[in-house]
Design a protein around this nucleic acid. Sequence first.
DNA 1: AAGCTCGACAACCGCGTAAGT
DNA 2: TACTTACGCGGTTGTCGAGCT
Length: 313
Amino acid sequence: MGRPPCCDKVGIKKGPWTPEEDIILVSYIQEHGPGNWRAVPTTTGLLRCSKSCRLRWTNYLRPGIKRGNFTPHEEGMIIHLQALLGNKWAAIATYLPQRTDNDIKNYWNTHLKKKLKKFQSGSEAADANHQLASRSYGESSKNESSCIRIGENSSVYASSAENISRLLEGWMRSSPLQPNTNLNGTSNHDNKYYGDFVKMIPNHESNEVQCYRPQNVEHGMPCDHDLEGMFVFDHHHHHQRLNSMAACDKSSCDSSQKGSDSSGLIEQDKVCFEHEEKVKMDNANPPLSFLEKWLLDESAAQVEGAMELPPIF
DNA sequence: AAGCTCGACAACCGCGTAAGT
DNA sequence: TACTTACGCGGTTGTCGAGCT
């Protein structure tokens, strides 16, 4: 005998998730953590299959997800990585920790593919990805401050973090637990998800969503430093980031060939972060991988040539 | 105002692989 | 080792809202 069946198809609800279902799922994950999806419907009573629960969590409810408003830099990353990796959305998503593979895939299909097509009609097809990505990077670096900060564009977070925070506010008010406390003698592991959500409560006065998370969060969550790396973007940091990415690209090759589950991504992320910290510390010049060289070349090229590129959008 | 079209995105489906028994 | 199922991924579909006629 193998594993018991995931869930019988009879009585399984389909279609959009309701806020009530979201609360149930989030509550469960706060208590048990993501994983063991098979147990979710049976434990919570949700009339959803385990697959649907996992998808809902990873694509929508998971804290730290940034939604909508892809930045030019993100666009450039996606275009580059798509050209490099093909439609390996999960792999591409590892370079954009705040974006889900589904989000990236949708954005590619609805926006970038069209842009590329449009662009290809006006230039060499073989070079379209390259140039379009360069342009995107260029727009990013031309940005006055070259910084993207939480709160300055609060709408970016509104759809996921704020929604779930709202859902949880009521739930937490009725809960005796406090964030990151250990009242019942259980391990911190039992409460860490709770802590994550607490730190996403929106600031209604400033219309900002606080999205701080503790370090070393497991189960597929990027660490704070990664978020920082995405929110605060400048040219210097960009190069460091690219170095890190390139290192991750190399280091993750083996693991990605084996398959990329959430724990694999965490390990990858840790490696990314560790490498990034190392780069910061010694400011060394590690050997460049193909990806790194390409990205750095583009980054440099855009400085020289971005201003000359004709607007295509 | 009603109907139609299109875009965006959430969710589903099917398949390959990993993992449990 | 073989069998069975969970999990993760990529492709596709369904739904909803905005804009247009």
